[in-house]
Computed example of a mutant assay.
Amino acid sequence: MPKDLLMPVRIWDLPTRLFHWTLVACVLGSVISAKLGGNALVWHMRLGYAVLALVAFRIVWGLVGGRWSRFSSFVYSPAALVRYLRGRAHADDHFEVGHNPLGAYAVLAMLAWLLLQVGSGLIADDEIASTGPLIRFVSGEVSLAWTAYHKSYGQWGLFVLVGLHVAAIAFYRLRHRNDLIGPMFSGDKLLPHAVPAARDSLATRLFALTLLGACAAAVYLLIGLETV
């Protein structure tokens, strides 16, 4: 469709965009610090706490955030997924606006996997110098089992999900000429018809900042249980 027939619509509010890129940086830093080992493990743990706070924020924001950031806008039924795969979308499906069904399930899988990975890290023990802050709440056997998961299945599962995410971005860009990266920077998508825009006002952004602060405080209190 000619670009002069498209109109920019705010799809991704600023809190969602900042969450996305901050999470990318924290996950990347966490992986690098884990590979470096030694003193870098202190940063591995700090970045893990940051990831936990960010994921907690995204879950809450998925309930009260901008229209297209809410889970209700992109958690599709199995029937909608089948329509998408068959290329028989209904007019009110809006697959091209926010996340399509495959992208939606990928987002949910990533959030769930990150929660499990960080959670296993909270009770992990490398048997050298680092232990998770909640290790005293589980037995040594449970801790060692989840430590093994954290270093193997959890880590490689995360790599697979990230790889699939990058591959999907490349596929939609090369096959469908659909840029998924640009809108996550600008917030806007060029769409062929009018759709409701996401709320992205100063008040909304301050509200999101308050929620993020609350999530960070909750994580701080959680890891503080180590000394209680």
Rank of each mutant, 00 (worst) to 15 (best):
P2N: 06
V9F: 05
R10G: 09
R10T: 06
D13I: 12
R17S: 15
L18F: 04
L18W: 06
F19M: 11
V27Q: 04
V27Y: 11
N39M: 15
L41D: 05
L41A: 03
V42R: 13
H44P: 02
R46E: 14
V60H: 10
V60D: 09
V60Q: 06
G65P: 06
G65C: 11
G65I: 10
G66K: 09
A80L: 05
L81F: 15
R86V: 03
R88V: 08
R88I: 04
D92R: 07
D92A: 09
A106H: 09
L108F: 15
A112M: 11
A112K: 02
L114P: 08
L115F: 04
L115Q: 05
G119M: 04
D125A: 08
D125L: 07
S143Y: 03
W146F: 11
T147I: 05
S152P: 00
S152R: 09
Q155N: 12
F159I: 15
F159T: 09
F159K: 13
L161P: 03
V166I: 11
F171V: 04
L174K: 12
R175T: 02
N178K: 06
D179V: 02
L180A: 02
L202F: 07
L206E: 01
A208C: 11
A208L: 11
L225F: 15
V228C: 01
